[in-house]
Amino acid sequence: MDSARKTQVSLQPTAFKGRGSASYVPGRYAVTTAHGEDDGWGSVYVDDGTSARPETQVTEETARSIISRNDSPDIAFGQSINPYRGCEHGCVYCFARPSHAYLELSPGLDFETRLFAKVNAAERLQNELARPGYRCAPIALGINTDSYQPIERRFRITRGVMEVLDACSHPFSLITKNASIVRDVELLASMAKRGLVSVYFSVTTLDNQLSAKMEPRASAPHSRLKAMRTLAEAGVPVGVMVAPTIPMINDGELEHILAAAHEAGARAAGYVVLRLPHELKQVWREWLQLHYPDRAAHVMSLIQQMSGGKDYDSRFGQRMRGEGPFAQLIAQRFQKAWRRHGFGRLPALDTSRFVAPRKPTPQLELF
């Protein structure tokens, strides 16, 4: 780690304004880690609001490939695109945080401050779709990152990717916490008329104060609902994901979120319980102790009850829904509210319209 990073390592986790994580939790592949040692003069950090706040750094990178594929039996999509690595939204519960460990960076503060923009994403996508062996299947846009996180306003990588998909009539879905998606409402509406797109909004809470602590740079809950309504009125199929559902933190809002989302135009709904893979366990525990020390032990006890006595159960199927009485109660409450509001499924995306783009060649580019 460089010296600037070392000066930001706290003796105790510290809540930074606008950040979800409280420290540079070491990644599991880190070669070296830094630990602050106070020399008696308070030189490691000052807990008076004047301590340095980690700034967002964005590195432009050239991706060698852009479509990721998976065969997990409990995931509904087979291929996805992530225009960025890391996510400035800073959601403390994000299951993708541990992916930053592959970069020898912290799944804690680095995940939300050390970002990477795949500036050639649209070009790579066009090349990959033009391959003779490519078979069209819906693409999920933004899974390990939010495609509409704040830096999208500057880089417009998501917009470029969608324009490629639009040009060749390739279907895709996306999920976001950012109301800035309304920037592209006309493009989304045009593709929706051809059955090429569906959008899910992740709404974790309707409480602005909780949202500011838990997902500090995501759009406020009411802004997401407003964006949901805008897209629905434009003819874009929209759904809502109450994800993650966390015992004693936001699970009490489950029915209220579903009601608000349905009123805003959502016609499909789902939920996922909190997942704590790898380093996320420490990130989450630090956050709990900082913001809810009075109930931290109870929250973790319920999480472990849903995870076979562990912080996290990675088994397919179990990892999304949990097990035990509390998990069953959440499932029953969700199903009851789902039926009461008349939620269903969003229309299937149409793969029959796909026309492979022309692969650029030096000779053809002369004309």
Rank of each mutant, 00 (worst) to 15 (best):
C91V: 12
G90I: 01
S72M: 14
P73V: 15
S51N: 13
V92K: 06
S51W: 12
S68E: 14
T59I: 09
Y93C: 02
Y93V: 06
S68I: 10
R85T: 00
I66A: 13
F95G: 09
F77G: 07
R97V: 15
Q79T: 04
Y84Q: 06
C91Q: 11
Y102N: 00
E61N: 06
Y84V: 07
T56R: 14
R69I: 02
E88L: 02
C87F: 03
S99H: 11
P98E: 06
G90R: 09
S51D: 15
S65R: 13
V58C: 07
R97C: 10
P54C: 08
S99V: 11
A76K: 06
S80G: 07
R69N: 01
S80D: 05
H89E: 01
I67S: 08
G78D: 08
T59N: 14
A96W: 10
I66K: 12
A63C: 11
C94D: 00
I67C: 07
V58N: 08
G78M: 07
F95K: 04
S99M: 14
P54M: 11
A96E: 04
F95D: 13
N82F: 10
A76D: 15
S80T: 15
S65N: 12
E60M: 07
Q79P: 06
R85C: 01
T56I: 15
A52G: 11
E104S: 14
